[in-house]
Amino acid sequence: MSLLFYIFSGLMLGFGIMVIVCRNPLSSALCLVISFLGLAALFVTLNAYFISIIQILVYTGAVMVLFLFIIMLLDIREEKSKDWNFLAVGGGVVVLFGFVVQLISVLGGYEDGKQKMVPFPEDSSHEDVKMIGAEIFTNYNFHLQVLGVLLLVATIGVVVLSRRQGKEGSENN
């Protein structure tokens, strides 16, 4: 089980780095997809199938496809490598250093994180879908409704914004 953990977390981190390193935006997007798949596989090793499937369904199946779509339709070309700007590189290193120090100090003080994560029991008796559903619709029902309204507002906003330009343009979708 731990071997799988190292394989998939290595996959995740490696392709996560590739997202930044790749010059071609399409390659970056696909590396992010593989990184997401690695994360989903990590959830599977914890027997949390539902979250892993939702991870694939929402992020890789929907969000990243739209990303890819936009990259293709806008025809974003490969970025040309520029000369090194040493001031910017130095600034980046300082910010990175500060961020890592902050992460270590915050996570070091987090006592619950020191316990080993217990995977769900192996057998299919635990019903993670039902557990998550019951939790969301009882304890967090209000938050769920608020989120729903927020998404609805965003959807209406998108429709309004995209229909504004010219009445004749509204024919094509």
Partner: peptide
């Protein structure tokens, strides 16, 4: 024999 069968199919098919 997953507990999330139809969702699994949708997730993978969307790939």
């Amino acid at each position: 024999d997953l507990n999330v069968g139809p969702l699994f199919i949708f997730a993978i098919a969307s790939l």
